[in-house]
Every structure is written in C-alpha cells, then in structure tokens.
Nucleic acid binder design. Structure first.
Lengths: 318, 318
DNA sequence: GTGAAAGCGCTAACAA
DNA sequence: TTGTTAGCGCTTTCAC
C-alpha cells in the first residue's frame, strides 16, 4: 500500500543497498580474454549481443570484463553472480577456478570442460566444418591442397589433415603455411605457396580474414577465380558474400553458441550445484562460389605449373 | 598492519558494501541504443574496446546497457557513476536527462550537445568526409553522380549535395536512392540507378555494407570496375581493403572518438560541475582503387547508356 | 496489512 | 597505530 505510493511517486531503490542486503548482484561478467583478432571481432559482437539480450531479459546486467583477471577483479569481490568465458587462453583463468570461488561459469571453447558442478561448457565443434571442407575439395577433384593457418595446435588443421588423408590425399608439410592472422599475411602465404614447384589448386584459409588476403593476392596476380585457384575460408563473417567471388567458408553459429552459453549460466544461477554436460555446436560448410572443380591432370612434380603465373611481383605488394 | 595481514591472507573486500558506503560504484554504462546496424557493428567493437581499455585503466568497469532504458535501469538506481551514449536515437534518452539525474554523461553523435554541466559531447564531423568525396568525384571528371543511403535526414547526404552544387554539379533527385542498410539493398539500388535513361558514372554509398552490395551487383552485371562505375563507400570497415577493387571510402576514426569520449567522462567523473565544450572528430577520405577518371562525354539525355549494360537480369539475383 | 529492529560488509569519524 | 561506533539503504524477521 505505502510501497505502491512510493513507486508511483518515482522512487527508485538503490541497487547497491539491494545487492548488499540481498546478497546477489544480478550482474554477469563476460570475459573475452583480451583477444584482438582482427575480423574475428565480428564473432564477439554477435556473441556479446545475444548474451546481453538473453540475460537482460532475465534481469541480469552484463559487465565487460577487461584484459585483467576476472577472478580478482569481479568474482572475488562478489561483484557478479556469474561469468561467461569466451575462449580459454593458455595461462588465463579456468572455469574451474571461477566455480570454486563460488560463482557459476559458462565457457565457450574448442574442448569440453567438466561436467563439473557450477560450470557449463559450450563446445565449438571445429572438426565438422574442417571435415566438410576436405570432402568438398576432394569431391571437386583437388589433389594439391594447401592450408594457411595461424595457430598451433589447431583442431581445424588436424581434422582437415586427417580427413584428407582418409580420402587418400596427403596434406604435404610444405603446403601448410603458418602466419599471423592478418589478410596481408594470407596474401604473402598464398604467394609463397604458388611459387612452389608443384603449386596447390585449392587452399583452405583458417580465417576469412586470411582468405580475404588470398583473394586479394590472387586478383593481383591476375588469376581467374575460382578457375585457377579454389579458396575456402573459415568463420563466415558477413563480408564473405561480398567478396569476388563470394567466399565458400565454414560457418560458426555464434548466435546459437551465445544463446546456449547464456542459458546454461542462467540455469546454473538457479542451481549452483548442477553439473550440466558439455554441449557441442558443430561448424558447417557454407557453399558460395570460390570453389570449383579441378580437372587438370597433375603435371609431373619436376616441371610444375610455375611459369604460368603472371604478375609474380604482385606478391610483395600487399 | 592488521589490514596488510588481511590482504596477505587473500581477503577481498565486498564490492557492494564498498559501493554502498562509499557512494560510488566505479562502474560506467555504455549504451549503444539497441542498434543493429549490420556491418557497422565493427564500429561498436572498436568503440567498446577502446572505452573499456581507457576506463579499466582508471579503475572503472564497463556495463553494457541493453536495449532498455539506461536511465531507469542503471542511472536512477545509482548503479553507475557515468554513462557513455553512443549515438542519440530519436525517442531515446538524452544526455541532459542523464546529467540532470546527477550522473555525468558523454555522448557520441552527429551534432554537438551543450555545453551543459555534466555532459561531454564528441561530435562525428560527417560533413568533412562527404565534402571530400564530392571534390574527389568532381576532380575525376564525374558529372553524373548518384547517392545510395538509408536514413533521412542524413548530414552526409546534405553535405554531399551542397558540396557538389558548389562545384556546379547537381545531385538529381532521381539519383538518390533510399533503402535499408543491407548489401542486398545496395545491389538493388545500383541496378535501378543504372537502368535509368541517363545512368550515373559514379556512386557514393552511405555505408560500406551498401557499397559492398553495389560492388557485387556491378560484378554480376559484368561491369569493369572502376572503369564503368566509380564507387565510394563510407565508414572504412576492415573489409574495404579486401574488396575487388579495394574500396575508396570515408574513414571514421572510432578509436579516437572512443578515447575522447572516455576521457571527457573521466574528467566529468572528477568534476561533476564541469561543462566541457563539444569536440569534433572529422571524417576523412581514404583513397583506394574504386574510383577512376571519367572522360566519357555525356550522351544526350534521351539516348542514355542503357543498352550497353550486359546481364541486366543479374539485378534480381542477389 | 503496518511498524520496529537487526543485519548485510564496508567507510569514515572519532576516541583511545 | 588501533579500537569503537555510526551510518550507507535496503531486506528480512518478528511483533503488533
């Protein structure tokens, strides 16, 4: 009765007092591990947005945890009720540490965590997409295949290699290039790869940013795409449908991943003792136009296709 | 002495109690106004990241305010010490409302706010870039120029039109297309534009996403770029250097903008009564390869260039 | 229904 | 330096 009046008169309770007395903050920290992945950022927007949406609806606020340590900055001081860890970096906080501190935690990563009480694990099934790429390239007659990546170890590379080998196609060590994650690095890598005596007819780039660089370099060299070189990316960032040709790539369903993460956390928030099993979201191939059939008969290893490539010097440009 | 022992023993003070007693939260809300601008998202990542960096360094946490009302959700309940408003949407909260509620506020928007005590205003000077585009196209001999946008009123469009007219080039009403913000819409718009009896030789797309659609459509129509059509985008999102040809566009320096916003807020946090003058960050042209000289003599209005365009039907594709 | 009182964990002011 | 006490503004409990 009296309370209703107060509300009507525009009274707003002090959240901090509420939190202190009630013992819960209705705040969740989201920790991106201080990564700065160039275009992969697009993931994070999507993930942050969906998580924010989902949690906001249930009355939770979202705190952007900085590059510092979530544990000491937010968890220990009891400033948040839960944490979402996006990716687990070597040397960073582990979900178990957070859960042990009494705060539920959802992790998004490449590998399953738990089941452990208080931690929910969303696994990005990177292998499926990689397998599909292997099959796609094999089905299109490619035998000389390259890979451009930037991390070791990389589950995508492993799955790609294994799948290729299962199809009777070796992924030669000189055809896997490891660089940094920038488009420029991708451009340089493909140039080196094509300069080899026995150049690849198809390349799988670990990220779309890298693939973008490959595309750029290929155009500068005057190659016909995808005729002279088939290209597959990874991540399916929005610009993939705008490249020339539109990029065939592997899609990571960030929306789904974020939704699942938010929801395990929410359930953990209701019941701290629950130990939900890991949930996997598989990546999958998205077909566009940057891959085509390769019917050329492989030349003898000694003579290569090398002299056929125009504008070799474009490689050092950018 | 005793205190030191507590710290050593791993004691962490309860933030909520601290906040209640100390009267400050060391939290800042950042409000993106619930926008979902497709690729323009890239801005937000950059802005969020820089703001987070800058504030974190000074001991402030960053709260992602959701699509709801910052005022009632965070400001009134005294859950944050300050607010950063990114863009001011019609019908949304105004910086003055927030300042009047006793919470300092920094705004990033197209137009100056204040000076008002408690609000800092960072202005994105959209006109400069637009002017530079007008001059660029004029200098390259273009006289038949189109614009593809998605908002009205749009300071970019106004400045572009005025600058063009000052150079003796009218921006005909039938050459400005208003659509939604997707690349697909851009593709459709350019198709319509090129179908006109007297088609443009250059087009200024209000966003890079739109420009991406234009690029796509142009390729599908078999146009030579930039020979047959010069294209300028706006925003300079990272993929601009990966398109074919790389996109000439207008750069918005998000990092600088965010840094300034964070810093006015910080100074306002120290002195609530300050009324700093608005600060403008000008946009500027970034030259790449999607614009070239136009030496073709304008044909008589009645005959047009229409029949010269191959693959007209590509327009409805995607 | 309403009012009074204790306590959430800290800070700040004062006394020892 | 250290101990004590009174709030900060709410929730919860227990009377009335």
């Amino acid at each position: 009765m009296v309370n209703e009046r107060m509300v009507d008169l525009g009274f707003t309770p002090n959240l901090n007092a509420q939190r202190l007395s009630h013992g819960r903050t209705n705040l969740v920290a989201i920790d991106f591990g201080g990564r700065r992945d160039y275009l992969a950022d697009l993931f994070f927007v999507e993930i942050a947005r969906v998580i924010q949406d989902e949690l906001d609806r249930r009355g939770y606020g979202v705190l952007l945890s900085g590059p510092g340590d979530v544990l000491t900055r937010w968890v220990k001081p009891q400033a948040v009720d839960g944490v979402i860890l996006v990716g687990v970096l070597p040397g960073g906080v582990t979900p178990d540490e957070i859960a042990e501190a009494g705060t539920p935690c959802a992790v998004i990563s490449n590998e399953p965590h738990g089941p452990t009480p208080g931690v929910g694990s969303i696994v990005v099934g990177l292998e499926s997409g990689a397998r599909q790429v292997a099959r796609l390239l094999a089905d299109h007659g490619h035998r000389d295949i390259a890979f451009i990546g930037s991390d070791r170890p990389d589950p995508v590379l492993s799955a790609f290699r294994v799948s290729l080998e299962a199809l009777g196609i070796p992924l030669l060590e000189e055809r896997v290039a490891m660089t940094d994650a920038s488009p420029r690095a991708g451009a340089r890598a493909i140039c080196d790869l094509l300069r080899q005596p026995h150049p690849p007819t198809a390349v799988f780039a670990r990220t779309d940013a890298l693939a973008g660089g490959v595309l750029r370099a290929a155009h500068q060299m005057g190659l016909q795409l995808p005729g002279d070189l088939s290209i597959v990316g990874h991540d399916d960032v929005p610009f993939c449908e705008l490249t020339e040709p539109p990029l065939t790539t592997v899609r990571i369903d960030c929306g789904e991943i974020a939704r699942l993460a938010a929801n395990v956390l929410l359930s953990l928030l209701d019941d701290q003792t629950a130990a939900p099993p890991p949930v996997t979201v598989e990546t999958r191939l998205v077909l566009r136009s940057s891959v085509c059939a390769q019917w050329r008969i492989s030349p003898a290893p000694t003579q290569g296709r090398d002299e056929g490539l125009p504008h070799r010097d474009a490689c050092d440009g950018g």
